[in-house]
Amino acid sequence: MRVLKFLLKRLGSIVVSIACVVAITFAMMRVVPSDYFTQLELRYGANTAGKQMLDLQRQEYREIFHLDDPLWKQVGRYFVRVMKWDFGPSYKEPGEAHKITELVNAKLPVTLTVACAGMGIALVFGIPLGIFAALRRNSWIDYTLTSVSMVGQVVPPYVLAVLLTLFFAVFVRNFQIGDSFPLEWLALPSEGWGSWKNVVMPALALGAAPTAAVARYIRSSVLETLEQDFVRTAVSKGLGRLQVIVRHALRPSLIPVVTVMGPQLSYMIVGSVLVEDIFRLQGLGSLFVNAVNERDVPLVITSTFILAATVMLINLAVDILYSVIDPRIELK
């Protein structure tokens, strides 16, 4: 019952927040200096036929997209549609009623897969590194690992993307070690989406920061756990430190990692806006950027909506997961 109440409360606040996000986006797209129609006018407005066509089109758009409605009505109507997972047509193809839904269905998996792969990298590398650093506390290894993870956390993913490509494509290959190296993994995907190899590089670039975050988190929580009585007892019984960690300290240390996952996953999903262009991925990020460039309002709204909603739902999911793993945590 309490869980249900919690869920309803959180979902309610998510809906309100998203409504505001959508409303803000609608409002912003209204004040943009050169909107879709001015662009059209520049393109076709030269002769009578073009102008008549534009007039017709404008009229048609008014009806299809309810352009004359006040903001609240537009937002409300949008939400009614969203409930049915139907985002309507885009400006570019007003005739295709489910165009945006198709686009979202095609592009959301791309972004999510890269983000999940990044998270996978973060967990696979971050956890051992963190444990290792904690065991060798205050040694040079600890310092190195902490500093490197700092770099991973601070340097933005697009710079990492460029540096990674530079490293593999230029240096590795120029020194002739590249022949046996699986180069196609590192090739920026002209193959387009479809081959899982294309996930590797973007996931590495996006996963660096989460890896660093996970490693630091694990390190400090393992240190904390090591100080606790039951671990001390175990050590004094003569068990090896590593054994103790694996048997006793790891599980409680892993729990807080879940809390890192939320913000990090959202970071990777929104970060796709800047990284996808570099890797030529056709995900939500590039959808958003292109839509903004073309001033395709319905598309901008929907891509903003999906990105924001995904981020919020992930945070909710992480909170729930957290309380499942550690029942002491109350949902509130």
Binding site: C20, V21, I24, L307, A308
Partner: peptide, 13 residues
């Protein structure tokens, strides 16, 4: 609400 709005998106808009 500001937190709910991904910063990059708002910045671009």
């Amino acid at each position: 609400i500001m937190f709910a709005f991904p910063q990059i998106l708002l910045l671009i808009l």
